[in-house]
Computed example of a mutant assay.
Amino acid sequence: MSRPYKIPESVLVVIHTAQLEVLLIERADRPGFWQSVTGSKDSVDELFLETAVREVEEETGIAVRNLPFEQEQVAGLVTISAHVPLENLKDWQLSNVYDIYPVWQHRYGPDVTRNTEHVFGLRVPRDIPVVLAPREHLNFVWLPYREAADKCFSASNAEAILLLPKYVDRAG
């Protein structure tokens, strides 16, 4: 059975601290390509907020939840997951339309050449545990936002990171 084509609508989530440090992750399929969390909608009906929450957890292990904390039952033990409140996830009301990189074109339908990316910011504590999805990412690093922007391979990702001071709520 062949995999369905990706939906050419995605999210970009800039994970950051109140001190403007940004979490970057290195792609497993392209070592040396550093980026923020990105991912496509799973279905046409999936809300961008839902996509952002899902992708952050899949790629970093950070759960974004409505509850002040969440307990999970794992093998009979109660654990508290790495999480942040949903209110820390902000839709920046920005979107970028860009040409899909040729290396990833095969994931999309034959006539699809452009993707629309919706930008979010997620404020987290600096010491939050990060657990990467090993099939997707090799390493992570926290960098001051300007250095993070310089390290990104994607121009739209770098531009979003440079906008961070405009969107960050340093009080919270």
Rank of each mutant, 00 (worst) to 15 (best):
A82P: 11
L47T: 15
L94K: 11
K41Q: 15
E58M: 11
G32Q: 04
G32H: 06
F48N: 15
V22F: 02
W92C: 11
K90L: 13
G76P: 05
A52V: 06
Q35F: 01
D42F: 09
V78L: 09
D45F: 12
K90P: 00
N96K: 08
A52W: 03
T79M: 09
F33P: 00
K90S: 07
L77C: 04
L23Y: 06
A18L: 13
L77R: 15
D42H: 12
V97D: 02
I25V: 14
H16L: 05
A63E: 10
V74E: 07
D91M: 10
A28S: 10
P31I: 05
L20D: 15
G76K: 06
S43C: 06
T51V: 14
I62H: 03
E87T: 14
T79S: 07
K90F: 04
L94T: 01
Q93L: 05
L49D: 13
V56R: 05
E55L: 11
A28K: 13
F48A: 10
H83K: 09
N66H: 11
L86K: 13
V37T: 02
T38G: 14
S95W: 01
D99R: 13
D91A: 13
A28R: 10
L94H: 02
N66L: 11
A63C: 08
F69T: 08
F33G: 00
D45L: 14
V97Q: 10
E26V: 07
V44Y: 14
P31T: 06
V97C: 03
E72L: 12
Y98P: 00
I100S: 03
A28C: 06
E46D: 10
I15F: 06
V53E: 04
N66K: 11
R54S: 08
I25L: 08
L12A: 15
N88V: 01
I80E: 15
K41M: 13
Y101M: 04
P68Y: 11
E46Y: 05
V74R: 13
P85E: 08
P31V: 09
T60Y: 08
Q19G: 14
L89C: 03
N88S: 13
E57L: 02
W34H: 07
L77E: 14
W92N: 08
I62Y: 01
V22D: 01
E59S: 07
V14S: 08
L20G: 09
V22E: 02
V97Y: 00
D45W: 12
F69N: 04
I100P: 02
S81D: 05
V97H: 01
